[in-house]
Amino acid sequence: MKKLNQTELLDQRIAELTLQHNQELVELKQQFHAVKYSMSPTNIVQEGLNGFYQTFINKENLMSTILSIIGGYVSKKVVIGKSDSSIKKIIGNVLQFIVTSYLTKKNTKTQTEL
């Protein structure tokens, strides 16, 4: 009699796991379709254009970003100049990144205070 009870429990557990498996499969398919849609070339281009449009609308933010990039580039050229040394180029790139980041943070902080 006990064997029959264990068999019934095993059948019940198999049915539960099958149901769970089917539900997870449906969720996985939905996630796959969502990722497939978001990674489509048209969607990527559309999101990029929307981001560019939003940046273009906020001209103050665009101007501060451009000034930060120019500031970093100029600081690199002033400190390093025209050098063929790989180490100097790496140091120049790091300096450019640091100056650009600093100017961006400073401009963002200044804009939020206004």
Rank of each mutant, 00 (worst) to 15 (best):
E8D: 07
V78K: 04
K2S: 12
I98G: 02
P41C: 01
I87A: 14
I69W: 07
M1V: 05
L25V: 04
I14E: 07
P41D: 00
S40T: 09
K76M: 15
N61Y: 05
I69N: 01
Q46L: 15
R13H: 13
K76R: 13
G81V: 03
N93L: 12
Y53C: 02
A34N: 10
T100M: 06
E47M: 07
T108M: 07
N61I: 06
Y53T: 06
G51F: 06
G71D: 01
L10W: 09
Q111A: 15
T7C: 05
F32H: 13
L103I: 10
G71A: 15
Q111L: 13
I70F: 14
Y53G: 01
G71W: 01
T108G: 03
S68L: 06
N93G: 15
T18N: 15
Q111T: 07
L49E: 06
S86T: 11
M63T: 10
K77Y: 10
L95P: 02
T55I: 11
I14T: 08
L62F: 15
T100G: 00
E27Y: 00
L9M: 09
G72P: 04
N5H: 08
I69D: 00
S40F: 02
E8R: 09
I70M: 15
V94E: 01
Y102C: 06
H21S: 12
L19C: 02
I87C: 05
I70P: 12
N93C: 05
L114N: 10
M39G: 10
F56T: 05
K3T: 06
M1N: 08
A34I: 10
N58M: 02
E24G: 03
I90N: 03
E47H: 08
T110M: 11
F52A: 13
I98P: 02
H33W: 04
T65Y: 05
E27S: 05
G71K: 01
T42V: 03
N22H: 11
I70T: 15
N43V: 12
F52I: 08
L95W: 06
S68E: 06
I14N: 08
S68C: 07
Q6R: 15
N43C: 04
K76H: 11
L17T: 02
Q96D: 01
V79Q: 06
T55F: 08
I70V: 15
K3G: 09
T104A: 12
Q31I: 09
T42H: 03
N61K: 10
K2T: 08
K82A: 07
Y73E: 14
M1A: 14
L17Q: 07
G92D: 02
L19E: 12
L4H: 13
Y37D: 11
K2G: 12
E24W: 03
V79E: 07
Y73S: 13
